[in-house]
Computed example of a mutant assay.
Amino acid sequence: MMRFFGTLLLCLTVCCHLRAQTSFGDACVGSWKGVMHIYNKGVLKDSVPVRLTVTPTNQPQTWTWKTEYLSPKTPVVKDYILRLKDAAKQEYVTDEGNGIMLLDYLFVNKLYSVFETQGIVLTSTYELIGDTLIFEVTSGKQQTETGPAVTTYSVDNLQRVVFKKAN
């Protein structure tokens, strides 16, 4: 019985060590396809096919993060760079260009970013589950004081894509 638990502990340690060596960016490398569903106040307003392409660059721990919104009316391409800023703290940076840098924080298999622009608070997440990558952005700006020293913000909009690896 002790041999079994010893072997189990060794396997878990090796698996955790191997997983720790794979960065979030490396785990996302490839081509992904999905449909963005756009909600306002809980009601589906639109949907758009989306393609995400993640490729390593020639710089260490840096990846291109190209998102193509394949709308027939108004197609949009977002060419970003994802960079591992601090491996010990699991901090990343999304470089949107034009000097805009968003800080991202990795917890287990989910990358989080919270930021404000023009009075709107946004959260952005990417969650990797096997061969599925879930991307969500929420936004809202209405502030409500809900108690001493607590201010909450509305969540008015949600954009959500469930990406699948494209082969």
Rank of each mutant, 00 (worst) to 15 (best):
S124W: 02
T62W: 03
V162H: 02
V43E: 14
C15W: 15
T123R: 04
T94F: 15
Y92R: 01
G6A: 12
T74L: 09
L84C: 13
V35W: 02
D131E: 12
T57N: 07
I100M: 12
F5V: 04
N109M: 05
D131T: 03
W63N: 00
Y80D: 08
T117L: 10
T152C: 12
P72Y: 05
A27N: 10
T117H: 13
E116P: 01
I100V: 15
R83S: 01
G6P: 02
Q142R: 10
N98W: 09
D79W: 05
M1P: 02
S31I: 15
D46P: 02
D156A: 06
Q61I: 07
T94P: 01
T53C: 09
R19W: 07
T146Y: 02
P56Q: 09
Y126E: 07
Y92H: 03
L18Y: 12
P72F: 06
F107C: 08
W63E: 00
W65P: 00
Y39W: 13
K66S: 08
Q59T: 09
V114F: 06
S113E: 13
T57D: 05
A20R: 03
I120Y: 02
T132G: 07
E136D: 12
G25K: 00
E127F: 03
C16K: 09
V76I: 15
K165E: 06
E127Y: 03
W65Y: 14
K164T: 15
Y69N: 03
R19V: 07
L102E: 01
K41N: 15
Q143E: 06
D46M: 11
R19L: 11
E116H: 04
L70C: 04
L106T: 01
K45H: 06
E145A: 13
I38L: 14
E116L: 05
K41C: 09
T74F: 05
S124E: 01
G147W: 15
G42C: 10
K78V: 11
G25E: 00
T13G: 09
K89D: 06
V114P: 06
C15M: 13
S47C: 12
M2C: 09
L106N: 00
L133D: 03
F5E: 05
V150C: 11
V77N: 05
D131C: 02
T57L: 07
G34K: 00
S31R: 15
D95S: 05
L44S: 09
F163D: 05
V76K: 13
A149P: 00
S154T: 04
N109T: 10
W63A: 00
D156Y: 02
I120E: 10
I81C: 03
R51C: 08
Y80M: 14
T74D: 07
W65M: 01
K45T: 15
W65C: 00
E136T: 11
R83Q: 04
V137H: 04
K78G: 04
P60S: 14
T62R: 03
V14H: 13
P60Q: 12
T13R: 05
L8D: 07
V162N: 07
Y92F: 08
T64W: 05
K78M: 10
D86Q: 10
T144L: 11
K164W: 08
V121G: 01
F115V: 04
Q59S: 11
W65F: 12
Q59I: 07
L84M: 14
